[in-house]
Simulated assay, not measured.
Amino acid sequence: MHPVLAVAFGLYLLNLAVGVAAQLRLARFGVWHHVLYFGVFASAVAALVLAREAWLGLTVACLAYFPRARPRTWLHPALGAVGLIGYLLAVGV
Results as ranks from 00 to 15, higher is better:
A54C: 05
G10M: 06
L63V: 04
L75K: 12
V49K: 10
F38K: 10
F9L: 07
G10A: 11
L36N: 02
G10Y: 09
E53Q: 15
Y37V: 01
P67H: 06
L79Q: 03
L26E: 12
Q23P: 12
C62W: 04
Q23W: 14
G39K: 01
Y65R: 14
V40K: 02
H76A: 09
A51K: 06
S43K: 03
L63E: 06
Y87G: 04
H33I: 08
E53G: 11
V93R: 11
G92V: 04
V35M: 10
L79F: 00
A61S: 14
L50R: 13
A17C: 02
F38E: 09
R70V: 08
A27K: 06
L56Y: 13
A78M: 03
G19D: 09
A61N: 14
L11D: 02
L56I: 15
Y87C: 04
F41M: 05
L88I: 07
L56T: 12
L75V: 10
A44C: 10
F29Y: 11
G19S: 13
V91C: 06
L75W: 12
A6I: 10
L75H: 10
L89R: 07
G86K: 04
A69M: 09
V40S: 01
G80L: 01
V91K: 01
V49C: 13
S43F: 06
A6G: 05
